[in-house]
Design a protein around this nucleic acid. Structure first.
Length: 580
DNA sequence: GCCGTTTTCGGCCCGACTGTTTTCAGTCG
């Protein structure tokens, strides 16, 4: 029997099936069902193959009997028959062609049927030879568009997504600049950046203004903006010097709430929301809420009014993903999400002893300035490339130095810990007697990412079961937009952590945010204590917990779900080493 | 293909834009 297909493979297959069925002319709802299923599988915190084996896979949203059978076929035979059949029918280049503007599955299919065009190359050739205009529904204008797209390189590069921290750096600055403009009234960030997702395609800003044309024109005057264009329909588009595109929309004050709600999304949240209320005769759009009973469209100045009209409490943007938030009946049902100010301790940071840029004392003083009351210094262990010299004797000397510093500093407790490497055998790379002398131990995987799901899971579970490993750091090793998580069975990790009282970190490095939102939610629900750490390598990155907190909020976490919101006296007894 | 205290069948968001149309289907966000 072939090994279990990872969730990412199953999701990719469903996405491919959606593309193929679309080319095949299937009804849109069937295509959408496959895309929804792909998303559901991709985000599932458990192994979908394992769920299928247990007969529980249809409990995932968007997976029914038919898709269960397809997953089963994939597990049994390594392939899905329907996909094989459709692949034989449509060349892969057909899907590539739909990346061009104005060319969707229907029209691509038509060009394939009538001219045999089956790739970007043959499409370009046909456009140059003016052959496209011979097909009904296509004209000279389309040939021009196609050639312009090729010239602009649209065909060969899907637009890159930008990590949220980089996008917000410019987004926040542009919002501030617009707010300072004399013509502006309200200016707010909307879009996926407002939902604090991992990475964004572009930025959306919504504003009201006493002089809309003046505010739209002002966008181009902001120093961060390389070029701005178009002020029709009260919308201006800009590209920053850092290559991020941004839309500014100036709206009437009495529609500000509708437009904010619409542009904040997510798409799935809005679709589910609209579907839910259409049965009550209410139709939601960016322009207002149309009530069939009265024929009136209600405009809303605030989002609160929009949700209230639909019988819902205001929903924090981080929760708007159609993951259950539409079942809230009143404000009492909405979790009070954790805030950065709730954090009292930071239990993962580095100093010049390994690969950090600041001394222990500098880190402690900076943390105290941020309002933290305790920190753990966790330099890399001996076998890590950056911390080779933190050998056992050096770490023992560091224990003495930290005790001295802690006694000397007022207003902050400084603890000595380590970020120990988890070897391929699951063992930490210091001896137990040394680990026992520390206040705090994080175990992290830094090597041998490719050993496979079972070996990686066994490795981390072994570390979790070690009595002196208090927490697991950046548990999946992902780097947003750069490196996929290594293959690991998060279900088993969570089970082991819950069973042993081992904490799991949400690492706040802006390109990690690991655990991600979905896994963090699953872990917290399973009773695992979550911690949010900066993993700072300098005093200036201690505030990175902003990104970890954002992930925690997207995971529906409250302060009570996160252990380092507790003061040290209450946190200390929760460590495995303190519980014996 | 999924889903259900209004349904196990008949539903499954909303609106703008575009090019090629003679009334609109397909695409896009």
């Amino acid at each position: 029997m072939p090994p279990d297909p990872p969730n990412a493979i199953i999701a990719a297959l469903f996405d491919e099936l959606a593309d193929l069925y679309e080319l095949d002319g299937a009804v849109v709802h069937r295509v959408l069902a496959y895309r929804n299923a792909a998303k559901s599988v991709r985000e599932a915190p458990q192994s979908v193959a394992a769920l299928t084996r247990e007969g529980k896979v249809t409990s995932l949203p968007g997976i029914g009997r038919t898709l269960e059978e397809k997953i089963q076929a994939l597990m049994d035979t390594g392939t899905i028959p329907a996909a094989e059949k459709l692949r034989a029918k449509f060349p892969v280049g057909l899907v590539d062609m739909t990346r061009l503007p104005g060319l969707g599955p229907k029209r691509a299919r038509k060009l394939f049927d009538e001219l045999g065009i089956d790739s970007l190359e043959s499409l370009q050739a046909a456009a140059e030879g003016h052959q496209l205009r011979g097909v009904k529904g296509f004209g000279p204008k389309f040939e021009e568009t196609v050639l312009a797209a090729f010239a602009a390189g649209v065909a060969d590069k899907p637009a890159p997504r930008v990590v949220l921290s980089r996008a917000l750096e410019v987004g926040d600055a542009i919002v501030a600049a617009l707010r300072a403009h004399h013509a502006s009234d309200r200016v707010e960030l909307a879009g996926s950046a407002r939902r604090m997702v991992d990475s964004v395609k572009d930025l959306d800003i919504v504003a009201t203004a006493s002089d809309p044309p003046a505010l739209l024109a002002a966008l181009g005057e902001i120093g961060l903006v390389e070029e701005a264009s178009g002020t029709e329909n009260n919308t201006a588009r800009a590209r920053t010097h850092t290559g991020i595109t941004l839309d500014l929309r100036v709206v009437a004050p009495d529609q500000f709430g509708n437009v904010m709600q619409h542009l904040t999304g997510s798409k799935n949240h809005n679709m589910a929301l609209r579907e839910m209320v259409v049965r009550r005769g209410l139709h939601v759009s960016e322009y207002g809420v149309l009530d069939d009973a009265t024929g009136e469209t209600h405009r809303c100045a605030t989002e609160e009014e929009v949700y209230a009209l639909l019988g819902l409490p205001w929903i924090p943007p981080e929760l708007r993903e159609d993951r259950g938030e539409l079942r809230f009946k009143s404000a009492d049902d909405v979790p009070v999400l954790i805030e950065q100010a709730d954090l009292r301790g930071d239990l993962h940071m580095h100093t010049v002893l390994s690969d950090g840029r600041n001394t222990t004392e500098e880190m402690a003083l900076a943390a105290r300035d941020l309002g933290l009351s305790y920190i753990a210094i966790t330099d890399h262990s001996a076998s890590h490339g950056f911390g080779n010299h933190v050998d056992p004797d050096e770490l023992r000397r560091q224990i003495e130095r930290i005790r001295e510093l802690d006694a000397r500093l007022e207003g902050i407790t400084v603890l000595i810990g380590t970020e120990t490497n988890i070897g391929t055998d699951g063992r930490p790379d210091y001896d137990d007697d040394l680990l026992a002398e520390l206040d705090w131990v994080i175990g992290s995987v830094h090597t041998s990412f490719g050993i496979g799901t079972d070996a990686m899971t066994d490795r981390i579970v072994a570390a979790i079961e070690h009595p002196l490993v208090d927490a697991i750091g950046h548990p999946t090793g992902r780097k947003i937009e750069r490196r996929a998580p290594y293959a690991v069975d998060m279900d088993r990790i969570i089970e082991a952590a819950a069973r042993t009282g081992t904490m799991i970190e949400i690492n706040s490095a802006p390109d990690r945010r690991d655990l991600n939102d979905v896994n963090a939610r699953a872990a917290a629900r399973a009773g695992v204590r979550i911690i949010i750490n900066s993993d700072a390598h300098g005093a200036n990155t201690l505030p990175n917990t902003r990104w970890g907190v954002a992930t925690a909020r997207r995971a529906w976490l409250t302060a009570a779900d996160v252990a380092n919101t507790l003061p040290w006296e209450e946190f200390a007894p929760l460590r495995k080493r303190a519980r014996g």
